[in-house]
Write a protein that binds this DNA or RNA. Structure first.
Lengths: 221, 221
DNA sequence: CCCTCAAACTAGCGGTGTAAGTTTTAGTCC
DNA sequence: GGACTAAAACTTACACCGCTAGTTTGAGGG
């Protein structure tokens, strides 16, 4: 087939299809030939649109990051903004857990990831945090969110009572975790995030100054 | 070569060599043939000792997890134990960042990972936390530690001032992060961990009961 | 109208995980 | 001690991988 009248591929279509395949079958199952087949095309044709497979993965990762809402920092108290952002970030990653191992290695040169880092850091500095502290806070929250999306804690346990009963006296109920994946992961995230923010507020008062009163909001979750 | 008088391979030697290769060149660069070559052997010989490549990676991951010290839960207050354990855990992972993406997907059936989960969960329940809460706390700390080891925050930024200056007004100094990797990552971890523990202590007092006074310890770091 | 570029193609290279079968040694049982 | 079995190396081979090179032909601009 020579060049077709209507282009068969676009970058957007490649990225969307790649994300769907990764969601369905995992990161390791994405090969250029399989991706191309899903697009009705031969493998090497992808290289007319992306330089390498990694470039495709970068675009996929950035498309996920782009769905995170960072607008809170422009209009909310830093504590409320951090909370909303963290939940939005987590939601974006948890919707595509299979890309998290790739995405979590850092923003690299991906525009959406850099824009997010920019918004968070800028918001914290504007709120009075010293620059070094703002960096630390952004990093700490990224650690927590990425970790929570990476290895769904509950999914990591096997549905096999025998395995745990024998050697791990406190894990006799662990096999039931796999069945409550969502509530366990969300509960752990909510608890950890609230604890983190609570501790950061105390640190703020100790090292920066008094906190503005915060209009009450529903507890995160 | 037929069966040699002295076995050339042992599981331990395979695991140690695999870890060294992963540390040096990354997870993706570990192939069975390269690993075998480093051991002075042909590729398929590995399959006399491990069923699949994944089984080798499991053993590598568990050998890293095995270096985490979980003994604190048996002899320290839960807050102190959590802090020491988290640092030990982080140290173990940060020493081998390239295996973290594999390891962070959950304990699976790896004995050292399960023993660690058992110790943490048991220690928290013994300290008075309700079982569901203990699960959440263990998960939250695992999120934080795994996230911190997975993507060194600082390493994720590129040493290229041009990249940031143009479009990200608050990241004009981001290119310098790559040079301060260790201090940024450790500072973020220390801040986040202390904040988390501070928040958990407050949660304990609110929902479980008064905290025993804690002998003063040096701040984490 | 022609020229160049774009976007598909085919063919193929070196590398991957691993299955299958071979060879020789080590160790066990009568 | 001889026969048998299991172990641990080997070679060969398959299907797949990322990617390069070169080819074809339609699209769009001078």
């Amino acid at each position: 087939m020579p060049r077709p009248r209507q282009a068969l591929l676009t970058r957007d279509r490649i990225v969307a299809t790649a994300l769907a395949l990764i969601d369905a079958d995992g990161l390791a199952a994405l090969s250029t030939r399989r991706l191309a087949a899903a697009l009705g095309v031969q493998g090497p044709s992808l290289y007319n649109h992306f330089a390498t497979k990694d470039a495709i993965l970068d675009a996929v990762a950035d498309s996920v990051t782009a769905t995170v809402d960072t607008g809170f920092f422009a209009r909310l108290d830093w504590r409320a903004a951090l909370r909303r952002w963290a939940w939005s970030y987590r939601e974006a990653l948890a919707a595509h857990p299979n890309v998290v191992p790739y995405l979590a290695q850092g923003p690299g040169r991906r525009p959406a990831a850099l824009a997010m880092a920019d918004a968070v850091y800028g918001g914290l500095v504007r709120a009075g945090w010293p620059p070094a502290r703002a960096t630390h806070i952004g990093a700490a929250l990224r650690y927590f969110v990425a970790g929570s999306a990476l290895g769904s804690f509950a999914r990591g346990f096997v549905e096999d009572p025998e395995l745990y009963a024998a050697h791990y006296p406190h894990l006799t109920q662990a096999h039931r975790l796999a069945g409550h994946q969502r509530s366990v992961d969300e509960g752990a995230f909510a608890l950890g995030l609230d604890a983190l923010l609570h501790g950061l507020a105390a640190e703020y008062e100790r090292t920066v100054g008094p906190l503005a009163p915060l209009e009450p909001i529903e507890p995160s979750g």
